[in-house]
Structures are given as C-alpha cells and as structure tokens.
Simulated assay, not measured.
Amino acid sequence: MIVNNLLLKLKNRDADSIKKTQALLLGMKGKIEVLLDLQAETNIRQGRSAYDIMLITKFKSMEDMETYLAHPVHLEAAQYIVSVLDAQASVCFEIKAE
C-alpha cells in the first residue's frame, strides 16, 4: 500500500479558510476509483512553523497514485489549493505486506 501525506500551509490561516479547504479535499472522497482512503485533518497546535492541514491518501500501488494525480476531480481540487497555498511538504511511503 502507498500512503501519501501532504502538509498544507495556507496564505490565509483563519478558521474559515482552513475549514473550506478541508471540505474541498474531503469532497474528493468516493469520486476517484483508485483512492482507497482519504483523510484531511486540521492542525490543533498552531504556530509559525505549523502547517494547517494534513491530507492523507492511500493507494494500492504507485500506478494508482499516478492515476489519482491525473484524475479530473483531483486536478480541480489541486487548482484551488494552488490558489490558497503558502507552503507544502510531503512524505510518500510504502507499507509492505508481511
């Protein structure tokens, strides 16, 4: 399983902006076949170095993740994210079956 974690820091860091962005991300759930799971969690510990939202997505394979990245629903969400984004960081890793 592939797990991709994306940290987002918004330009406007007020509660309404964060909630709107979280809702937009959660709106992808169930609309992209290869997406096994999606979480969009908001940070409860604020600070200058803190990020606002962590998007966690899970896929069966890297190929499925690439399909997700090119999917129209994801591309539409990504277009919005780019417009409100100040900074981002990501970690992608594989969980191997034992």
Rank of each mutant, 00 (worst) to 15 (best):
M1G: 00
I2P: 05
V3E: 00
N5G: 08
L6Q: 00
L6N: 08
L7Q: 14
L7W: 01
L8S: 00
L10R: 08
N12E: 15
R13D: 01
D14I: 07
D14V: 11
A15V: 14
I18E: 02
I18H: 01
K19W: 13
K20A: 14
T21C: 02
Q22Y: 06
L26M: 11
G27R: 09
G27C: 10
G30T: 09
G30I: 11
K31T: 14
V34G: 06
V34F: 01
L36I: 13
L38T: 05
L38F: 12
Q39R: 15
A40Y: 04
E41I: 07
T42P: 04
Q46G: 09
Q46N: 06
G47H: 04
A50Q: 03
Y51C: 02
D52F: 02
M54K: 14
M54N: 15
M54I: 13
L55S: 12
L55Q: 15
I56R: 15
T57K: 09
T57S: 09
T57I: 00
K60L: 10
S61F: 06
S61M: 02
M62R: 08
M62F: 08
E63T: 06
D64A: 03
M65K: 09
E66W: 11
L69Q: 13
H71Y: 05
P72W: 10
P72F: 07
H74A: 05
A77M: 14
A78R: 08
Y80L: 15
I81A: 14
I81S: 15
D86V: 05
Q88N: 05
F93G: 05
F93N: 01
E94D: 03
